[in-house]
């Protein structure tokens, strides 16, 4: 029995009365009182401590991640290190007990994820990151939902970045291959013209060739001036393209440095990159 009596469905899975697909799981949880001063990073999650829910145990312990303008920052670490959690915390999906999140110098710790989207953050979840029943073009249109201006040019830019999507623009996104779906997912997030893009394991479940291509595209995106904060399982490849890398262990910063620097670091290599 869960703590929330309204969520107790007694194991019922009767599809004629309830519709389990597409249900929301995001728990909006934001806010601390504490702020602190650090670098001039474009986006920074600063000394974050917290966990899911109001009373959940802390998953992050004084963890800091940041990305500079137009750069790629990568969060790596072993399973269960809180990589995704750290990124979600910068997006307002975690209850922070301490620390703050700032975007372009502005404190956004108290904002909901939706409000952060308006402020210029784009987020690509690891799974369920496209509207499967809608066409590719409609997916991109939904990405631009908050924009009131004409987004035709942005859509053209996305199509230029991912040419395959232009060919498949009228096809339901759910019928695409894994790599193409990820392109739709990133494309959707780019439609808001974000200043910073958060990617949660964009290469999970795709073949090595597709992975290389996706990384190339991500570099291209970064060149247009968009900052990218990314969580990656494929630590070695990710660090190779990263300007900055964070190695997290048990919710805390273990190593921080440039991508190249971390790759060269003997200890990081031994413990996380398999030699």
């Amino acid at each position: 029995m869960s703590g929330n009596p309204y969520q107790d469905d007694r194991g019922n899975k009767d599809a004629t009365i309830t519709n389990p697909s597409g249900r929301g799981e995001i728990e909006v949880s934001t806010g601390t009182g504490h702020g602190s001063h650090t670098a001039e990073a474009f986006l920074i999650g600063d000394s974050m401590t917290g966990g899911y829910g109001k009373s959940g145990p802390d998953i992050l312990h004084d963890c800091t991640v940041a990305v500079n303008k137009g750069e790629i920052a990568v969060i790596v670490g072993p399973n269960g290190a809180g990589k995704s959690t750290a990124m979600k915390a910068t997006f307002g999906m975690l209850n922070l007990r301490q620390g703050s999140v700032r975007l372009d110098g502005e404190d956004i710790t108290g904002l909901t994820p939706q409000a952060r989207v308006v402020k210029g953050m784009g987020f690509v979840p690891q799974t369920h990151n496209i509207f499967t029943s809608m066409s590719v073009q409609e997916n991109l249109e939904m990405g631009a939902f908050i924009r009131t201006d004409n987004f035709k040019t942005t859509m053209e830019q996305v199509f230029d970045l991912f040419p395959i999507l232009r060919d498949k623009r009228n096809q339901p996104a759910g019928e695409l291959s894994g790599g193409q779906r990820q392109q739709v997912a990133v494309g959707r997030a780019l439609m808001t013209q974000p200043k910073v893009l958060l990617l949660d394991e964009p290469t999970a479940g795709v073949s090595p060739i597709v992975m290389d291509e996706l990384f190339d595209r991500i570099i291209e995106v970064a060149r247009t001036g968009i900052s990218i904060l990314m969580v990656e399982q494929n630590a070695r490849q990710a660090l190779e393209i990263a300007d900055k890398g964070y190695v997290l262990v048990q919710g805390a910063n273990a190593h921080t440095g440039t991508g190249k620097g971390l790759l060269a670091d003997e200890e990081v290599r031994k413990s996380f990159l398999g030699g």
């Binding site: 929301g24 989207v117 509207f131 939904m142 959707r188």
Partner: peptide, 24 residues
């Protein structure tokens, strides 16, 4: 229509609709 599409999007994937700025 934009509103109609946002309804379909919400039906398809509530979380992603939220992240796209659709008001549930």
């Amino acid at each position: 229509t934009r509103t109609g599409k946002s309804m379909r999007a919400y039906s398809d994937n509530e979380d992603l609709a939220l992240l796209s700025g659709i008001n549930p």
